[in-house]
Simulated scan of single mutants.
Amino acid sequence: MCPAARHRHPTFSTFVKESSRMSASTPQSAVTVLGLGPMGRALAGALLDAGLAVTVWNRTPGRDRELVARGAAGASSPESAVAASPLTVLCVVDYDAADAIVGREAVTSALKGRTLVNLTADTPARARETGAWAAAHGIGTPDAVFLHSGPEELYREHKPALDALGGTHTHLGADIGRAASYDLALLDIFWTAMAGYAHALALAKAEGVTARELAPFAQGIAAILPPLIETGAEEADTGSFSGDVNPITSAASSMKHIVQASEERGIDASVMRAAEGLARRVIGLGHGEDGFLRITDLLAPR
């Protein structure tokens, strides 16, 4: 998955599960990669480019050919791959797939005393469950998205190898689920924004505007978001949602126009209707002069 300090591609996230001890007999420069889909192959390639000794394994045979040709060692089993290095990078689609590999008795045994970096996106709760499993088997478990959480001394110990993967690395603290919380929040931003962009393209197309024609103006909209994110963060933390520039009553009005124009063209406007509905509820609660992020309070569990 991807560095979350600055997401290169939001489809990916990185979770780290680290052990309390390393194997003293294995070189620090040795790294194992389990799972050789597109991201796994890219990661193994980056580690090879950095001059590390890389061992690779994939459930489907044959995907290691190019990497082996570049100097990687192909392992016949995940347990032998894990045994080859003090640091293992697991890159699979989800925690069910991860558990199917590292949950095998032979692999679990091989991981004891080693570090596992699990590049698998899932919920904070699932990350903590995996952390509890690892702790019970003598494998410590920080989680990360190149935003690392867990024992800081282990993060520092393995940082040279992790740096070979690129990106910005930040340690967030000891809570195993903290990095996963960051990851999902960041992916929430991305996919909600992409859903909005997809809807905008459909609306534009219905009105005779091509995606290419709209693109430079869409980029202009994206450019105004960073300062809004910064001011919004302060507002959310302090609870003072200023509507001086754009009150939520104005936002609700513009969203209503989008819904109306979409439905006139037969375009599903359910996402925008949901956003407008939140805004109307906030207005109904007497916060019409506040900014749009006042809906944060409405969304929060009570």
Rank of each mutant, 00 (worst) to 15 (best):
V92G: 01
V54T: 04
S109I: 02
A211C: 00
A233C: 01
L162Q: 02
A222C: 06
A233E: 01
W57V: 09
R212H: 13
E235Y: 06
R281P: 01
V259Y: 02
R8S: 14
A261R: 15
D297W: 10
V245S: 12
A251P: 00
H257V: 13
A275L: 13
K205R: 12
D94N: 12
I139Y: 06
L186H: 08
S77H: 04
T130E: 13
K112A: 15
I189C: 11
M272N: 14
L48A: 08
R294H: 10
S109V: 09
G220D: 06
W57L: 12
S149Q: 01
W57A: 13
E152T: 02
F241V: 05
A233L: 09
P226C: 05
V92S: 02
A127P: 00
I101D: 00
V16A: 12
S240M: 09
N58C: 09
K159D: 10
A198Q: 10
P78A: 06
A215I: 02
V16P: 01
A195R: 11
A50F: 05
V82C: 05
H137P: 04
E207Y: 10
G173Q: 07
T108I: 09
A136C: 07
G177F: 07
E276N: 13
H257G: 11
A269N: 03
A204I: 00
A81E: 03
G220Y: 02
A206N: 07
A125M: 04
E264W: 06
A125R: 06
P226W: 07
A110V: 03
D96Q: 12
A73C: 06
H7N: 12
G177T: 09
A233V: 04
L43R: 04
K17F: 15
R294I: 10
A81P: 01
L147I: 09
V271C: 06
A252M: 04
A42G: 07
C2S: 15
A5D: 12
R70T: 03
I229L: 15
S109W: 00
G177P: 05
G45L: 02
L111Q: 05
Q28V: 13
R126C: 04
Q219G: 10
T11D: 15
V107G: 02
G177M: 09
T192E: 07
S85T: 03
D297E: 15
I229T: 07
V33C: 08
M194G: 01
S270A: 13
D96P: 00
V282Y: 03
G113L: 02
S240K: 12
L201W: 05
S76F: 01
D183W: 03
R280E: 12
T14K: 05
M22C: 10
L285N: 13
G40I: 05
N118I: 11
E263Y: 09
A125T: 04
G286W: 10
G196F: 07
G37H: 02
G71D: 06
I248P: 00
I258R: 05
T88F: 04
A4V: 15
P301D: 13
T120M: 08
L172R: 07
D268I: 05
S76V: 11
P142F: 13
Q260C: 11
P247M: 10
C2N: 13
L36T: 08
R212S: 15
A200L: 08
Y155F: 15
E18L: 15
G232K: 00
D244C: 07
A218R: 00
K205H: 08
L34W: 03
L111A: 04
H287Q: 11
L154S: 15
L201D: 06
G266H: 03
E66M: 11
L299G: 05
S270L: 08
H158Y: 10
